[in-house]
Amino acid sequence: MTSPLLSVRNLKVDIPSGSGTLHPVRGIDFDLHRGEVLCVVGESGSGKSLTSLSLMGLLGRTLERSADRMEFDGINLLGASGRQMRKLRGARMAMIFQEPMTSLNPVYTIGDQLIEALLLHRRMPRAQARARAVELLEKVGITAAASRLGQYPHQLSGGLRQRVMIAMALMCEPQMIIADEPTTALDVTIQAQILRLLYDLVREMDMAMILITHDLGVVARVADKVAVMYAGELVETGTVAEVFDQPLHPYTRGLLDCIPQPGKTGRGEPLGTIPGIVPSLVGQVDGCVFRTRCTQAGPACLGPIPRRSRDGHLFRCVHTDGYAPAETKAI
């Protein structure tokens, strides 16, 4: 296998506060290769958005990031200066946010916002930049692209705005896109179109994508690899087929039971539930983070939780015996 585009080891985010340090992201490991879609799935408070922001170097000043390794295409992101990160963000890694209305500046035209990055990072002549903007708007499926350049964000529908956001992310041909709930604010038909677009673009342009979502349906259809996040930890990682067909961690199994699935859950039958709530992440958490909500929890869950592996399908649980302890540290 070729060397990964992005390699992350033991990524942590801490939020110091008066009543003890909060640890919303607690030791995350993963590798991302070109042409791959990694879906990070989790509920609110799982730390998935903080993870993506910390990769982009966009955490607020009060948040502390640490890691053993964070390498993007051979560049050490841990040591990168603010200037280097800004260069990387515009040109080689891009981010798409959930709310397309607030992510676009309402006082500038679509065209100005699209070519800004090119003028900044590539020093490209204006006319050429505009030509590229038109080309990309067409690529993301916007009709009459040239005439859209002069429009303002409020003149576009939510779906169109999200397409513009994607075009903007693609302007400098990034190697990696991080999309944080890119379709959550959109209607279902638009969601399918946007996901299809992202999926095709990743394949076509040989990019890597990290897609942050809470929607297991989106994960199943889009992901190559899945990372299930709970209370700041990746509790299970593997290929999409591994995780969905043979979920090994009780939390993953619980999540899959919670959603109505035609053919699997009977109509009107009770859905599965996960009792309890996410534990407090202040201070150190000993043992398994999921034990307070797990139906299988036992005394062993208070001890150290081994990371087990089955052919690269990793999970942290003491209960699924019979699998070898993990040799590699990441997916």
């Binding site: 309890g276 709530i277 407090s280 307070t292 909500r293 929890a297 036992g298």
Partner: peptide, 18 residues
Amino acid sequence: VTNPTGAAFDRDPLLEQI
């Protein structure tokens, strides 16, 4: 959540934590 491990789980997670 009834749990066999004792002490750590005796609290009602609902009210104590939420």
